[in-house]
Simulated scan of single mutants.
Amino acid sequence: MRTEDMASDERKKEIEEIRMRALLKCKDGQELKGTTDQFVCGKCRKRECTYYQMQTRSADEPMTTYVTCVSCNHHWMFC
């Protein structure tokens, strides 16, 4: 038997609440980024997107741009 199985009903409720708060914190814990209308989402066709750039290849190649749609959470990348 696990220690969680031996806990009282009150403690089980507390544990479940802690898990739910942690789950929401992980899901919503991402920093709020500014949006741009520079990109059009290929899925919902809206212009509310966030993006960041990262150097993924050699220095003489362009940076890779990662874009995420704020409305439908569709994400894509391009160079």
Rank of each mutant, 00 (worst) to 15 (best):
Q38M: 11
D5K: 05
K33R: 14
L24S: 13
Q53A: 02
T50A: 02
R11K: 12
E14P: 00
Q30Y: 11
T50P: 00
V70N: 12
S71C: 13
A59S: 10
E4P: 05
T50Y: 01
H75C: 08
I15H: 10
Y66A: 09
M20L: 15
T50Q: 04
H75D: 11
E10R: 11
R47Q: 02
V67G: 03
T68Y: 08
Y52E: 01
E4H: 08
N73M: 13
T36W: 12
Q30G: 13
V40C: 12
R19N: 15
K25T: 14
D37R: 08
R47G: 00
V40Q: 15
C69T: 08
D9M: 09
V70P: 01
M63Y: 11
D5Y: 05
M1A: 12
D28T: 03
S8D: 04
C72R: 03
M6I: 13
R2G: 02
T68L: 05
P62T: 09
R11E: 15
C41E: 00
S58E: 07
R19D: 14
R11S: 11
A22Q: 13
Q38S: 12
A22M: 15
S58M: 04
K13F: 10
R57E: 12
P62I: 06
D5N: 06
M6S: 14
K13E: 07
E48V: 01
Y51P: 00
K43E: 14
M63S: 08
T65N: 06
P62Q: 12
E31P: 06
T64P: 01
L23W: 14
K43M: 06
D9Y: 06
C44E: 01
H75E: 10
G29W: 05
R21C: 11
